[in-house]
Each structure stands twice: as C-alpha cells, then as structure tokens.
C-alpha cells in the first residue's frame, strides 16, 4: 500500500517539479488561529504539511521556533490536543500528507505505543523525531513502521559515507536533508553546497529528499527546488506568525492572510523553479 507521502512525491515527480513543505508549530499562536492557518495551507500551495509538537526544550531549534514552541505551550497545547487538531484537519482534507515533528520526551511521557496508535487513527502520515538517531530505532521508529507510519530521518552534512547506510536503514516516506550544521532558522542554506551532497546521497537511495534549515526566501526555495525533491520552510513562517502578534501576544488581524501570502510566494517560486 502506498502512503499519502509516497503518493504526493509520485505526483510531484509526474509534474516534474519539487514540492513545498511548510512547518508551523501546533497551536501557535493559539489553537483557533492555528487551525485557520492549517486549513489554508494546501490552497496556498503547501504540498506537505509539517507540524511541530511543542516542547519546552527544543534543542535543535533557533530562537524563532523556540518562541513558537513556548507560545503554543502557554496556550495549553499538549500532544493530545495536537492529535485532535490533526484529526479535525483530516476530516476536511484527505489528501495532503501531514508529518508531525518534535522531540522524544512528550511522546515518551504520553506512552509511545499509545501515541503511535492515536497518530495513525488521527490521520498522521509520518514522524520526524529530532533526538532519535538510528541507534535508538527500537524506541519509536520500528513500532511506527509496523503501524504503517512513515518515519522520516534527518541526514546532515556530518553524515559521512560510512554512516549514511545506517541513517537510511529504516527511513520511509522521504529523507530530510539538513542543509547546514546548526539549528533552525539562523544560517542560510547555499544550494551550491547542497547539490553535491544530494548527488552523494542519491547514490545510496531512491527516496525523495526534502531539504530544510535555512530556507527563508522564495529565491532560496527556488534554488533548492531545482536540486531537491522538496524545500522545507519553517522559521520564516513562524516568524511571520510572530510578526503579527500584539504586545500581549494576541494575533492581530491579517496574521492568517500574511502567512498564507508568504506560503503562496514560496510555492510559486518552487513551482516555477524548474521551468
């Protein structure tokens, strides 16, 4: 059985273009606003949706996404509520692949098998758990695969030839190539440095490769879309959310439209990149 993620990448390949993966933190800045953001993403041009599961200590994230995590937590977003959000979205949209991204402790605290079962029934398609390297596959990756959930792994510039097969071993869905050593949203990705890395990885796998970390502008997204199967944009969208909050952290009018406009601009650039 092919998964929604596989179907989407097959369709993108057939169209001869790369996809846009958008990242937002679940419940940022609050749950109702987030659900309006989420609902409009496919129409604005998101091909895959990545949702962050808020965590108090997001070690791989820069200040922008850290702040998004804290805003969501301040609004009482829990893993259970994140799954409810997904379930409601899935009731309205049965085709857009949805990946949950986060850190292991909230999943562990929830009960990892209970989480996996509920994620499947809510309509989650894949998981990215930053602090679970292949060495810890028994924790979550293998039980996720058994349940038909795709497990997306990060490969990085430090993943050398010797290690790459280990990283690729249990990946399903797509491989997420981290364009730079560092945290999200701080440095900028350079397509000319990423290209040879993707060539290297493609010798070992036929999986689609999404590239993220440091892609902020439509121009950068287009440059990545010319060489990768998808471009991931996160911090730039979360920054757009933050820019539309008043001094008390409440959303100002125009927040949802501004984020969707940003997504539209990125999607346009990604779609035009290979023409």
């Amino acid at each position: 059985m092919t998964t929604r993620i596989e179907q989407r990448f097959a369709a993108l390949r057939a169209e001869g273009r790369a996809g846009l993966v958008t990242f937002l933190v679940a419940g940022d800045p609050d749950i109702p606003t987030f659900e309006r953001l989420l609902d409009g993403l496919p129409a604005a041009g998101a091909d895959l949706i990545e949702i962050g599961m808020p965590f108090s200590d997001p070690m791989a994230d820069g200040p922008v996404i850290q702040a998004g995590n804290l805003r969501a937590l301040a609004h009482g977003v829990t893993l259970a509520r994140t799954l409810e959000i997904v379930r409601r979205f899935r009731g309205r949209d049965q085709t857009t692949p949805l990946v949950l991204m986060g850190y292991y402790n909230p999943i562990w605290a929830y009960g990892r098998l209970r989480f996996l079962d509920e994620a499947v029934s809510a309509g989650v398609d894949g998981l990215i758990v930053v602090d679970l390297p292949p060495e810890e596959d028994e924790e979550l990756c293998l039980p996720a695969l058994e349940r038909g959930l795709d497990f997306v792994r990060l490969a990085t510039p430090t993943t050398d030839a010797r290690r790459l097969p280990t990283v690729l071993r249990n990946v399903r869905g797509f491989l997420y190539y981290v364009s730079l050593t560092g945290i999200t949203g701080v440095k900028e990705a350079a397509a000319e440095q990423v290209a040879p890395q993707l060539d290297r990885i493609r010798k070992h796998t036929d999986l689609p490769i999404a590239v993220g970390f440091g892609i902020k502008t439509p121009e950068q997204a287009a440059a990545i879309a010319r060489i990768a199967d998808a471009a991931v944009v996160g911090s730039a969208l979360v920054a757009e959310v933050a820019a539309h909050l008043d001094s008390e952290g409440k959303p100002r009018g125009g927040l949802v439209a501004a984020v969707h406009d940003k997504v539209r601009a990125l999607a346009h650039a990604v779609r035009e990149a290979r023409r």
Binding site: M59, A60, Y104, V130, D131, L132, P133, P134, E135, E136, R153, L154, A155, T156, P157, T158, T159, D160, R163, V167, V178, T181, G182
Partner: peptide, 12 residues
C-alpha cells in the same frame, strides 16, 4: 542513558 541526540551530533 542512551544517545538521544540530533543526527548532526551522532558522528561526533
């Protein structure tokens, strides 16, 4: 115990 870190750090 274990090694619950991001992939970037694993080789290191």
């Amino acid at each position: 115990g274990g090694r619950f870190v991001a992939e970037t750090l694993m080789p290191c």
